[in-house]
């Protein structure tokens, strides 16, 4: 019988540099011969690595702790009622053009209000959006370049206005009603799997603060909630812990580098009644005061829903 029967505990200790030479030796032998321990070690090490990954740790900054008290959106309506409310509000526009990638999947564009920023010019309203279909958030502005309008991030801020709150990112948000979509596709009873993909094209130009921001990155994020739209801003950011699903994709560009489109995705769970989408730039350094940005731009924000049949084998990109 082994002296180290609890391999999970030993794996975790080793990842933190807490294992002794003897323990590391025993773990090594087990990794060499025991496929389960090898697989468990690999998974644990991957999670440890991912948590330390600056790209993923971006999420941590905006992900507040889960409260042990009453959920902040406990008053969220049951799905059926929310669907009716959403249908009445009718703010979800669904495109009519379908793209069929293969016999097994279908894609449909979901309307993002002013996703290409052509319908506005000047500063984006400050603060968290309280209703569907409008961009608002931290200091940013829509500017026109060669006849094309594009969003420029100006400086980081704390969107809730909390004194001494974290201000290392500039987020621009929009709430999107999913209730019509859920109802129309009957996602609750469907045999298919539904995925939402949020994509945006980022670009970076030189800015005076570039030297102070070596780790700056842009990203697009999608959160799904079962909630009323005005509840998200009221409970932000604690509400994040109650998200039904979250997807995030980060892009790091060098000044002057060719722009790139990034796509974040998440499973569309049937209980989700709204999507909170955001495009953002994170200075990736702790700060409670605004940091001037200026060099990051985003354009052409698109949201797509993809329906795929549930397959016995999951296809992973």
């Amino acid at each position: 019988m082994s002296d180290f029967p609890d391999w999970q505990t030993l794996i975790q200790k080793h990842l933190d540099g807490q294992s002794t030479d003897e323990e590391a030796g025993a773990l090594s032998k087990e990794i060499e011969t025991n496929a389960k321990v090898r697989s468990d070690y690999l998974k644990a090490a991957r999670i440890h690595g991912a948590l330390g990954d600056e790209v993923i740790s971006f999420d941590l900054e905006s992900t507040p702790p889960r409260s042990s008290g009453t959920p902040s959106i406990s008053w969220a309506k049951p799905l059926a009622a929310a669907v009716i409310a959403g249908a009445f509000v009718g703010l979800l526009g669904v495109g009519v053009v379908w793209a069929i990638n293969s016999p097994k999947s279908e894609e449909r564009m979901v309307s993002v209000s002013n996703g290409n920023f052509e319908d506005s010019l000047g500063p984006v309203p400050l603060g968290f959006p309280s209703g569907f279909g409008n961009w608002s958030g931290d200091p940013a502005e829509v500017i026109e370049e060669d006849g094309n309008r594009i969003l420029r991030f100006l400086e980081t801020a704390n969107v809730t206005g909390k004194p001494n709150g974290g201000a290392s990112a500039s987020n621009v948000f929009q709430l999107i009603d999913l209730s019509n979509l859920q109802q129309e596709w009957d996602t609750e009873n469907s045999d298919s799997q539904f995925t939402l993909e949020l994509s945006a094209r980022f670009r970076r130009e030189s800015a005076p603060t570039d030297a102070e921001l070596p780790k700056i990155a842009g990203s697009c994020t999608i959160h799904l909630y079962q909630a009323e739209p005005d509840a998200i801003g009221k409970a932000w950011p604690q509400v994040i812990s109650e998200a039904v699903a979250i997807g995030n994709k980060v892009v790091r560009l060098m000044p002057g580098e060719e722009g790139r489109r990034v796509t974040a995705s998440c499973i569309l769970e049937p209980e989700a009644t709204l999507a909170l989408i955001s495009v953002n730039v994170n200075a990736r350094k702790p700060s409670t005061t605004p940091i001037k940005l200026g060099g990051y731009f985003v354009d052409d924000v698109q949201l797509t829903v993809i329906r795929q049949p549930n397959l016995p084998v999951r296809v992973v990109k």
Binding site: L51, I56, D59, P65, R66, S68, A243, A245, I246
Partner: peptide, 15 residues
Amino acid sequence: IESHLATCLGKLSEK
């Protein structure tokens, strides 16, 4: 991990 880590982080206790 890429797809679900953010969701799972949100499910951790406050501490």
